[in-house]
Structure formats: structure tokens, C-alpha cells
């Protein structure tokens, strides 16, 4: 019969249409909120999602995985007196590895000796060239540059970020990437402990 295939297809659409409402009712019966909750969004991103699939940004937001990367930022540690101690030592690896070469670093030189000091005088990222590849964060040996999760950075003019605009506290970093942060902190502590032990051993040997 001509039209059978079309009707068969329409039955699929019809089922999909109803799924939204049957799901709504089943969530209601279970006393759970389907919309505007983390649970609801998580369910809509899972294999069991049925019916409505929309995540209503900006009211609801997708749950971003830890590894998600958008644009880079520089991590600073908060010093004792609230001073921002930027982790970057201006070693230049990120600028070298950056594929579109959008990172610009001015290294600080000690005015007295002329020798380099491990702090950047300035740091630029041309956000309108950056290709969000994450190489800078991946190859930074000091965990100083990381990829951000914040996507709401559209603006009315072009975006060239300088040191001031790039800096974000370590606590923010710990918030968006808890697992990475813990792992790196542990590695750093282990390294420092090893260094201290070595120094102690060296001192003992000298004595």
C-alpha cells in the first residue's frame, strides 16, 4: 500500500512527541523536578534521554566535563598579604608550542644584573587567534597556564588579553578542575618533600 512507509515513519515521530509527556508524568510521579535541576540536565545528557532534549541555556547549563577547554588563563597563588603570585616563570614553552603563535611574553630582566627573573613583565594572548587547542596548558611545566571553562566572554570589541586580564586565582582553578588540581598539588608536594629530604641528606653528609 502506498503511504505505508510514510505512516510508519510518522509513528516514530509520534512516539518521540509523546515521550516528552510520559517522561514529565513519570518524573512528577516520582516527585522529582525534571527542569532546571542538575539531575534533570544530567538525565537529558544520558543514554536514557527520551522526548525533550533541550537544555535551556542560560537558565540551565550543560554539565561540563573537567577536561573541557575554552580559552587559556594564568593561575596565580594568593600570597600571605593578598599578593598575587603568578605561577608563570616566563620560560616561554607555551609561546613556542602555540600552533597559531598567539601568545606573547615579555620576560623580566633584573635591572641591576640584566639577568632574567622568573616572572613575566607582560603576557598577551590574542583571543581572536587562539584555537583553543590546549597545548600551552598541556606542556607548561609549572601548571601556570590552564584552560578555562567560562564560555560567556563574547564582547563588543576584539579581545587581546593582557597579564591582568588573564590572571585567575588557584582557588578558581581548583574549582573547575578538582581532579587535576589535586593530582598536581600532590605531585608538587611529593617533589618538594623529595627536595627537602635530599637537602637534609646533603646537610647531614656535610656535617
Amino acid at each position: 500500500m502506498y503511504g505505508k512507509g510514510i505512516l510508519k515513519g510518522l509513528s516514530v515521530t509520534w512516539k518521540r512527541f509523546w515521550d516528552t509527556y510520559t517522561e514529565d508524568i513519570s518524573w512528577m510521579l516520582r516527585g522529582k523536578k525534571r527542569y532546571n535541576t542538575v539531575e534533570g540536565v544530567a538525565h537529558r545528557s544520558s543514554k536514557d534521554t527520551k522526548g525533550i532534549f533541550t537544555v535551556q541555556y542560560p537558565e540551565e547549563q550543560l554539565i561540563v566535563p573537567e577536561e573541557f577547554r575554552y580559552v587559556p588563563f594564568l593561575v596565580f597563588d594568593e600570597g600571605a598579604d593578598g599578593k598575587k603570585e603568578v605561577r608563570c616563570t616566563s620560560c616561554g614553552i607555551c609561546a613556542k608550542v602555540c600552533p597559531p603563535q598567539c601568545i606573547w611574553i615579555v620576560r623580566t630582566n633584573d635591572p641591576a644584573t640584566g639577568r632574567p627573573v622568573p616572572v613575566p613583565t607582560d603576557f598577551f594572548v590574542d583571543m581572536d587567534i587562539c584555537m583553543n587547542c590546549g597545548f600551552c596548558a598541556e606542556y607548561c611545566p609549572f601548571d601556570a597556564i590552564k584552560m578555562d571553562h567560562d564560555i560567556n566572554i563574547a564582547s563588543y570589541q576584539r579581545n587581546i588579553y593582557n597579564l591582568e586580564k588573564l590572571m585567575k586565582p588557584a582557588s578558581y582553578y581548583a574549582g573547575i578542575r578538582p581532579e587535576n588540581y589535586t593530582r598536581e598539588e600532590e605531585a608538587r608536594k611529593a617533589k618538594e618533600a623529595a627536595k627537602a629530604a635530599k637537602a637534609e641528606a646533603g646537610a647531614a653528609a656535610a656535617a
Binding site: 603563535q101 606573547w104 611574553i105 615579555v106 620576560r107
Partner: peptide, 9 residues
């Protein structure tokens, strides 16, 4: 070479 160490944008 212009990117580092004297990388003024």
C-alpha cells in the same frame, strides 16, 4: 622569535 622573550604584542 618575536613571541618570546621580548614579546610585545
Amino acid at each position: 622569535k618575536s613571541r618570546w622573550p621580548d614579546g610585545k604584542h
